[in-house]
Design a protein around this nucleic acid. Structure first.
Lengths: 199, 199
DNA sequence: GCACAAAACGAACGTTCGTGCTTTTTTATA
DNA sequence: TATAAAAAAGCACGAACGTTCGTTTTGTGC
């Protein structure tokens, strides 16, 4: 069972662990995320790190929660500065694409979703909940943008940004980001395209 | 190092192993594919199974080759019956989508690509080669269909069918296939849409 | 039917995994 | 500064991993 930190130092250590855990899980997966390696990278003992969570499952769940926090902070919240609808949709997609190139392991969610899509249990449930929230956010803004089929547009945007993550990680070719941006632009309602007085 | 089977019985066993290995790896990944479990499911000994490959890495590489064979047989070759261009593109995407729902673990390539996109080595190289061939096939048909940007269309089709696989495995909602088919149809050159005299 | 090779087996290896128990060190407060 | 609690460490365990080894079973050509 999970152990809640009490002192300030305990809190700092826990957050340092989870920050590293998110990066590591983006590369090795949540199953390949091993307590021994995580402890070694943070230069602390296995048992000391372990005591912060009580079980590997709880470490995985805490890592998912930390990844969700990071995603909200780097992708969702900046996009909230844009007005509802197409502009915010564009910002959400753009922030996602930028984030793919920022973190060494690529998108945490693409890695863990593929890993757990056939493994029932609380870990899978937590991943599904986060991804459903992401889809719901896209759908909500698609509806605000007045498109005819918000669910379908949300699916298309999800596919394109995830596809860009996948192709970029495999090929290293940044042109996929151009392809993704062009494709996304054609999906968004034309009236709300960014100011481009010439056309 | 890998051991080539000599007798007919050796060949049958090897193929039975690889057939099961592809399914298992689609669920557990190529790293989670364990020799002990594979042997248990086939009701044979670990060492007997192991002798067919000589190392886990060679088992993984053989599994990738078997998955590529299966993909060619169930997706690519049936689509070759369609004339080049948009019709064959549609058939490729359609066969892929059907295959997602057929195999219990979903798409082998979606699972393993996400697993190995950050793990250098021969296993990753083999996966990348297969996926590049798939992209190249899509691009070639897109070019034959006369679209303005074949690379981008190939990327979009890749993203949509992979996205459908991902969303279906996570949500179980078959409407994603409808979304994917509609989106794909809008991407294909209109002139070659399937016969639909009414519209 | 014998002999030989291929295939399959069973036991054991060294390593790494998650986890539990006990002790030491560090932190925060009175 | 003394003390109690929290954090971290040390050590050991059982299980599972890939792999090796020597042996036994199976199948096939003379």
């Amino acid at each position: 069972m999970s152990v809640t930190p009490v002192t300030e130092k305990g809190n700092q250590t826990r957050e340092a662990i989870l920050d590293r855990a998110v990066d590591l899980a983006s590369v090795e997966g949540l199953e390949g995320l091993t307590i021994g390696r995580l402890a070694a990278e943070l230069q602390m003992s296995k048992s000391g790190l372990f005591a912060h969570f009580g079980s590997k499952r709880d470490l995985q769940l805490a890592t998912i929660a930390a990844a969700a926090d990071r995603f909200r902070a780097t992708v969702v919240e900046p996009a909230l500065e844009q007005p509802q609808g197409a502009a915010r949709l564009r910002a959400l997609a753009e922030r996602y694409l930028e984030q793919v190139d920022t973190y060494a392991g690529g998108c945490f969610w693409a890695a863990t979703a593929a890993e757990y899509d056939d493994r029932p249990g609380p870990v899978r449930d937590a991943i599904v909940a986060s991804l459903d929230a992401w889809l719901a956010a896209l759908e909500s803004q698609a509806r605000a943008a007045g498109v005819e089929n918000p669910q379908r547009l949300a699916f298309e945007l999800y596919s394109l940004v995830m596809g860009a993550n996948s192709r970029y990680r495999l090929s290293g070719d940044k042109r996929v980001f151009v392809f993704a941006r062009e494709a996304i632009e054609e999906l968004l309602p034309e009236a709300v395209r960014p100011a481009n007085p010439g056309s």
